[in-house]
Amino acid sequence: MSDALNLSGGFKDPALDAARAFRVALNAMSQPGQIFEMTGIEPPLPLSEAAGALLLTLIDHETPVHLGGRYNSPAVKQWLSFHTGAPFLPAPQALFAIGRWQDLLPLTQFAHGEAEYPERSATLIVECDQLLNTGSCLTGPGIKSQTFLNLPDERGLAANAALFPLGLDFYLTAGSQISGLPRSTRIGGV
């Protein structure tokens, strides 16, 4: 391989940039369906700006990460290894996963938490083409009355929500757009 390693494009000031990115992540997870902006880094393709910033904010050597589909590439692995030191493991052992929706299926392969420890579940970062406040109706904690979001798969995500308090938590990302979708969000107006 003659390609030079491309490890640039991370946080310029890690402590402050991660603090700002986390605030966006917290706002997004506590206000499901609202679309926020997460910027400030240049990760290698196919990682989006928002997904890259989110990973650099949340993962480290304690958090196994699963790379789905095209994300399981040397460029992504080297970049994430350099910036975070996170180990790459198969889906069942992962605390975080990144990929397109179809890369992450079936959802049952991920840890869903246990009745007495529901937080022991994976967080999935789903890369999308564009986030829009149209489509599926969302209700639940963090949502004043209702909101709408174009979900990759309404039925699959509604099935996940039905497992509450178990289940997976999601971030949907597209470019610099990011939206949170925790297990507590009811989907389809039910």
């Binding site: 991660a18 992540a25 993962i59 967080t123």
Partner: peptide
Amino acid sequence: KRMIRRALLKAVAI
């Protein structure tokens, strides 16, 4: 901070 931040995100999700 990352460890606490991960706990906070699970806390708002549940």
